[in-house]
Design a protein around this nucleic acid. Structure first.
Lengths: 129, 129
DNA sequence: TCCTTAACGATAACGGTTACTATTAAATGG
DNA sequence: CCATTTAATAGTAACCGTTATCGTTAAGGA
């Protein structure tokens, strides 16, 4: 017996995939709680890390603030609003997937790249003019 | 009278520039304390943010862990070790400075990009094989 | 030199995350 | 189908990086 399939873990994974908004652990906790009122915040944290570990989710690299998770494991990059912190996916082929080929830095063994575009989201853009 | 030039602020800026290792506030605090034993950790935090605000330093985007600061304000990117968290600059012209031109995402006003390469630093590479 | 107040040192508070522990409930095997 | 084992949970305390508070110090102009 190694890893058990619990109702909590299933719902956490499902909600993460159903809402590709790169939620924080706490945001996801609130969603999960709507379906499983007695769930614990610690359970959400624990399972998010388990999902990342087994490759079913990713931790995305963002500026500041709490950790954000992504149920979309396809390689892609992100935009983050410098005002409200909201994130979105970057579409198209603008992704720089030439890792490993370029000698990014002498002596380093490069495994991945993450690109974060920073700016104003449509909402904040409208509010600040 | 608006902004005073304190001994603490000078030393903090000098140490940040003298050691381009992208230190955390705490790492820098220890360096500064060697030259100014009575300095407070809060002073280091406060001045780092002031330096970022006035454009004399940058907060770099890294995976996880405490915030890291960079006294080099020239646009450049970073590599971070997934094992020990150490960071280094990415040299050469591999920088993607074509922001603003590309419509990264509909409706967003993009202001900057940060690229983080992830992998093993030479030391960790040697230790893990 | 005096005065104003930005900035400091010390420390408490805060928020996100992790660790701990008694309890619950998946999975296995009789 | 029930008993047994133990992974995982709920609840909560602890942790740690960071920020806020506040009385005191000292930068810099008058």
């Amino acid at each position: 017996m190694q890893r058990r399939q619990t109702r909590q873990r299933q719902i956490i994974r499902d909600e993460l995939i159903a809402h590709p908004t790169h939620p924080t652990a706490d945001e996801l906790y609130m969603r999960v709680k709507a379906k499983l009122p007695r769930v614990s915040l610690g359970t959400v944290y624990r399972n998010l890390e388990l999902l990342v570990e087994e490759g079913a989710a990713r931790r995305i690299v963002v500026e500041d603030g709490p950790k954000r998770y992504d149920g979309n494991t396809e390689p892609h990059h992100h935009v983050q609003c410098v005002r409200c912190g909201a994130t979105a996916d970057v579409m198209g082929d603008a992704t720089h997937s030439r890792t490993g080929s370029l000698p990014i830095r002498e002596g380093w063994d490069i495994q991945a790249v993450s690109v974060l575009y920073k700016g104003l989201c449509p909402t904040c853009r409208a509010e600040t003019g």
